[in-house]
Design a protein around this nucleic acid. Structure first.
Lengths: 243, 243
DNA sequence: AGGGTCGACTGATCCAAATCAGCCTAACCG
DNA sequence: CGGTTAGGCTGATTTGGATCAGTCGACCCT
């Protein structure tokens, strides 16, 4: 009954009960469809009045550059995710967005979004919900970097990504396709590329997960979850939370 | 013209232009005023149907517990800040909230908040803005933990806290009162208490900042900003961004 | 007045992860 | 087809910060 809608609308509809009317409003947000090549930034820090996007296909990452030339990847976005909402609300972008693969995305104009809040107030709740879910993910990420060692952190990262991909039908509990390089993992987890490589080897040798040739294979979910201290219920809800 | 409103309303009004009508709606959100003793958690992970709060006085911290018994403090909240918005949207709390000092806060009921979106759509924009600002702070925090060493991280932390306090009139560029213990700093920055102590000593010996006896004194703002790679414009906007 | 606790502070030792320096393979390309 | 580049991978060495094991003073409390 909702399968004719966009991945974005479906995702929100899973958490905030929406009427057909409201689904339609959500879908009308999708503006011009655009393509981006891998590696060439879509938005960068300081740019003003950039549109937001809803990711249709491909992966992107959001990152911040530090003065020393290092960077910290804050989050990866996968199909169905909202991109650059903060940059719209603040008018000037506070982070960079780089496509990891070739990407297709629909523009969302700030004016469209904000004006629709008046006509469709539940849309506001849905968008607020989506923003809060993003924040929850950043918080988990923060906790991992602050208090988990490299192995736990990596395990947690791979599990969380899997859970998110499963939600949009791009993965199972057995594994998923993953276009990320070890460099990207390192910049995301606050580790060096060298160390990521060693940790992945350890996880492989322990028979927990394999991350090779662009795919992640989970060999022992239970032990991996135990190692990572991963909250399984975290991302797989199954009905609207807000009635 | 806005000074009769709550700190919360003032803060939002600084970023989203609001009418008197809308300010009033914001102020009506404040429900029953409650008191909390320092150290006794207001909310903890997993609790369901907790109200949100708006902090009137005192400081609190939001943290997550890891299985090993360690914890990671995600953020500190100061007067005028919203507390536990995510816990309300998700119905079940995904983090703990502990008062650092004695605290006064007004309850905000989920139903009040969400229903008001229909009547006052710009309220939705304002709350979304507040949530995004929180997310931006968590992102900065993440970047610091992931890619800054202990000294830069500490410097950045003290500067950011100062900027936030200045915004609500609780600090100047010269310093501010700060009730945090070195243990709390450690749990927030992902360091050990011992190392925080040494880093604070270094910063003091370098003549940059002093953090002693419950107050932070900034002795050399410019060098501190340079060390921390701190974006000064980051938190001190001076007019509504969304007209 | 003596015990208990909390927070700041210190020296010695250890270790996880960074850094440095390099190899190997596959893919691309002019 | 030989050169270049991007990723994956590895060993040796160094280092930032953790851990362990305390001391000291302030402020309880009874």
């Amino acid at each position: 009954m909702t399968h004719q809608h966009s991945a974005f609308a479906r995702k929100l509809g899973a958490f905030v009960a929406l009427s057909e009317e409201e689904f339609a409003a959500l879908d009308r947000l999708h503006g011009r469809r655009k393509q981006f090549a891998a590696g060439r930034d879509i938005v960068h820090q300081g740019q003003v009045n950039q549109p937001a996007y809803i990711l249709a296909s491909g992966w992107v990452c959001s990152y911040k550059l530090l003065s020393g030339g290092t960077r910290q990847i804050v989050d990866f976005q996968i199909p169905g995710d909202f991109l650059g909402l903060r940059s719209v609300l603040f008018r000037t972008a506070d982070h960079n967005i780089e496509p990891v693969t070739r990407v297709e995305a629909s523009e969302v104009l700030a004016s469209d979004l904000l004006e629709n809040f008046a006509k469709t107030p539940r849309l506001a709740t849905a968008v607020l919900w989506a923003a809060s879910r993003d924040e929850a993910m950043v918080v988990e990420h923060l906790v991992g970097i602050g208090r988990r060692d490299a192995k736990e952190r990596t395990a947690h990262f791979l599990l969380e990504l899997g859970a998110r991909l499963k939600l949009v039908g791009l993965g199972t509990t057995l594994g998923y396709a993953c276009p990320l390089s070890q460099y990207l993992l390192a910049d995301s987890m606050g580790l060096s590329e060298v160390h990521v490589n060693r940790v992945l080897r350890e996880l492989r040798e322990d028979g927990l997960v394999t991350f090779q040739h662009g795919k992640v294979d989970i060999h022992d979910l239970d032990r991996l979850v135990a190692l990572a201290d991963f909250d399984k219920s975290y991302l797989d809800q199954d009905g609207p939370l807000l009635k």
